[in-house]
Design a protein around this nucleic acid. Structure first.
Lengths: 223, 223
DNA sequence: ACCTGAACACCGTTCAAGT
DNA sequence: ACCTGAACACCGTTCAAGT
C-alpha cells in the first residue's frame, strides 16, 4: 500500500492550482486508476465538495492536469533550423510522456473526443508552425503535420508503456532482451515479420529510434 | 433513452462468442461508456454471474470485442503492389475504426498497456509484412512500420472522433465549414498555423487525405 | 458444467448544513 | 464565498445457492 500522506497545512486555502498540482503528483506516484476522490481529499486534507467547488468534475481535473504538463513541455527555445526545432518539440513531448506515462492515455482520450479541449490543438499548432518553416507546398501542410503529431504521440506513448511495464528500477537491457526473445518465440506462420526484426529490438536507443522516425517523415514531407 | 431489447431466446445457450457479439452491438449502438453489465445482462436475458462464467472481467470482454473486429478487418486480399497492399490495410483499419469508433479508444488503451494483448501486435505484423515487400534497408523496417502504424491508428481515430461528434445524421460539409470557421476565429497570436490552414479543412476528402499521409510516409521510407 | 441474482466494495457526484 | 461530509446512484465483481 502506498501511503498517501496529507501534504497540506489546511491553513493555505484550497485553489484550483493546488488541486491540479496534487492530482499530477498522485497520477505520477500512484497511477491513473488509483487517483480517486478519496485519495485526493485525503492528500489535500479536505472533503469532496471542496474539490467540486473549484473543479466541475473528474474529467475536467484530468484535462487540467494534462494541460498544465503539456503547456510546460511546449515551452521551448528556438533551436536554429526547422528540423532542429521539430526535433526539439518531438523530444519535449517524448520526455513529458516518459515522465508522466498517464499522459499517453489522457492525450489519446482527448484526441478521440475531438474538437473539445485545448491541449491537442495546442500540440498540433506547435508542430504545424515548425513544419511551415520547412518550405513545403501549402497543400501538404495539414497532412504533414498530422502525420508527425500522430507519430510523436503514438511512439512516445509506446515508449512510456514499455517503461511503465518495466517499472522504475527495471533493467532496460534485460527487458529488451526478454521482449526480443518473446518475439523470436512467436509462431513463424503468423508473425514472420515481427520475428525477423526481433534482433533489432535487442539493442536500440529509444530516443534515437524515435528521432529516426521523425526524420523519416520529414524526408517524406520534403519530397 | 435507448431501449435495450432482449435479443435472445434463452433457449440457445450462452457462450463467449454470443457475449462478445452482444458487446460489439452494444458498443456500436449505445457507446462505450454505456456498456455496463446491467445493459449486457438485460440484452442477453441472463445474470451477471453467467457472463463471468465465460469471461474473466470487463477488460477481457472489451479486448475480445476489439480482437474480433480487428481480426475480421485484417482479412485482406493481396492487391498487387506493396503500395496497394499497404493502402488496403490502412483503409481496412480506417473503415473498421470509422464503423466502430470505440476501437480508437480501445486500441489506444491496448497500446499503452504494452506487451500484453494480441491485437496491436497483429496490426503491427500486418503492416510490417507489407513494408518488408518494399525493398528498404532492414535497419529501417522497425521505424518505418511504427511510423505507419501510429499514423494509421491516430489519423483513423481522429476521423472517427469527428464522425462521432457529428452524429450519424449530421451534414459533413456543414461540420467541416463550422470547424473551419472555428479555426479561423482562433487567436492569431496563439494559433497562426491552425488559422492559416483552416481553409484547407473546408473541402477535403477524409480518405484521400488519409491516404496522402500514408504516401507521405511511404515516400520517406523509400528514400 | 453452467446459471441465478442478491450482496459487496468502491467510485464519482450532490447537497443540506455549516463558517 | 468557500468548505464539510454524509447520502446517493451506479458500477464491476463475487459467491452461495440452484439446476
Amino acid at each position: 500500500m502506498t501511503r498517501v500522506t496529507p501534504r497540506t497545512r489546511r491553513s493555505e486555502a484550497l485553489s484550483r492550482e493546488r488541486i491540479v498540482e496534487a492530482a499530477i503528483e498522485l497520477l505520477d506516484t500512484v497511477g491513473e486508476d488509483r487517483l480517486t476522490f478519496k485519495v485526493l481529499t485525503e492528500r489535500l486534507a479536505t472533503g469532496a465538495g471542496a474539490i467540486y467547488w473549484h473543479v466541475a468534475n473528474k474529467g475536467e481535473l484530468l484535462d487540467a492536469a494534462t494541460e498544465a504538463v503539456i503547456a510546460a513541455a511546449l515551452t521551448i527555445e528556438p533551436a536554429g533550423s526547422p528540423r532542429a526545432d521539430i526535433h526539439a518539440v518531438a523530444l519535449a513531448l517524448f520526455e513529458a510522456i516518459d515522465e508522466h506515462p498517464w499522459l499517453a492515455t489522457q492525450l489519446a482520450l482527448q484526441l478521440s473526443r475531438s474538437p473539445s479541449g485545448t491541449v491537442t490543438p495546442r500540440i498540433f499548432e506547435s508542430i504545424g508552425r515548425r513544419v511551415s518553416a520547412l518550405d513545403v507546398p501549402e497543400s501538404t501542410l495539414f497532412t504533414a503535420s498530422s502525420a508527425l503529431m500522430h507519430y510523436i504521440l503514438g511512439a512516445a506513448g509506446q515508449n512510456a508503456a514499455n517503461a511503465r511495464f518495466l517499472g522504475p528500477d527495471g533493467d532496460r537491457a534485460e527487458f529488451l532482451a526478454a521482449a526480443s526473445k518473446a518475439w523470436e518465440a512467436l509462431d513463424p506462420e503468423e508473425y514472420p515479420f515481427t520475428r525477423a526484426i526481433a534482433a533489432q529490438m535487442r539493442d536500440h536507443d529509444d530516443r534515437e529510434q524515435f528521432l529516426a522516425g521523425i526524420d523519416l517523415i520529414l524526408t517524406g514531407i520534403r519530397s
